[in-house]
Amino acid sequence: MIDIMSIASGMFLLVGSVFTLIGSIGIVRMPDVFTRLHAAGITDTLGAAGVLLGLALKAGFSLLLVKLLLMLVFLLLLNPTACHALARAALHGLRRPWMD
């Protein structure tokens, strides 16, 4: 039982790490700020969810688990909001987005 939990936790951490890394590579590779926001979105959603759920499985049933899930909720509520505010500001302040 303990083994299954730690394997599942490891899987989640691996998925989270992979997506965090891909998102960060995207932030560097993408051609303009709007496309970079898409890449950052990967880190903010599956990257953060993977890492936090992996850690939550390590925590077991405790207050810690609740706080980790609370943190995930905050991240998933606040990050898209910041992302949208940034995109909107960039749209007003910059110029039209990069097209092919």
């Binding site: 880190t43 890492v51 910041a82 960039a90």
Partner: peptide, 29 residues
Amino acid sequence: LRAVKGPTVYDRILAANAFSTKTVLLITA
């Protein structure tokens, strides 16, 4: 790296925001 390279202020804010998300994950881990 993205924050240093820019080129616009929005790229730097984006980088700072991504950095803070990762900092949160790092602190927890």
